[in-house]
């Protein structure tokens, strides 16, 4: 189970990086980065998974006394919650910059932006 999630995450990271490095359209690069970001999140969450345990919420399913033997690791989940929100912020920023670049040059092709190339 955890291996499947990790393999999926790693494949998503590789797919996203491949897309970001080979595409020249800025919008496609942004989509690729989002895919890679999702892969990282899946890997991080799957690290906290433990077989046969349940979500870290104390209710009828998890008696207080047995909490530490019944729940999975809550720390990666808290970390990924943060990572998802920041990832969304980064995606929005990239989209805004892409719009600005399109406004100045009239194209979204990254190879046309050669000012900073040496």
């Amino acid at each position: 189970m955890v291996i499947i999630a990790m393999v999926t995450g790693f494949i998503l990271i590789l797919m996203g990086l491949y897309g970001a490095l080979t595409n020249t359209n800025i919008l496609r690069m942004i989509v690729s980065f989002s895919v890679a970001n999702t892969g990282v999140n899946i890997v991080l969450v799957s690290v906290g998974y433990m077989h046969g345990r349940t979500a870290p919420i104390l209710d009828n399913a998890v008696p207080l006394a047995e909490a530490s033997t019944r729940i999975i690791d809550p720390v990666p989940q808290a970390l990924v919650l943060t990572a998802i929100v920041i990832g969304l912020g980064i995606t929005t920023l990239m989209l805004a910059y892409a719009y600005k670049l399109y406004e100045t040059k009239g194209t979204l092709d990254i190879s046309k932006f050669s000012e900073l190339k040496w």
Binding site: P56, I57, L58, D59, L64, A67, S68, I71, D73, P74, V75, Q77, A78, L81, T82
Partner: peptide, 23 residues
Amino acid sequence: TAHYYAEHTAQDIGASNIVTAII
């Protein structure tokens, strides 16, 4: 760390959702 959170959240914070207590 996780063990500490699992043991102490209920008495110290009083939140059912441990992830919320951490965040």
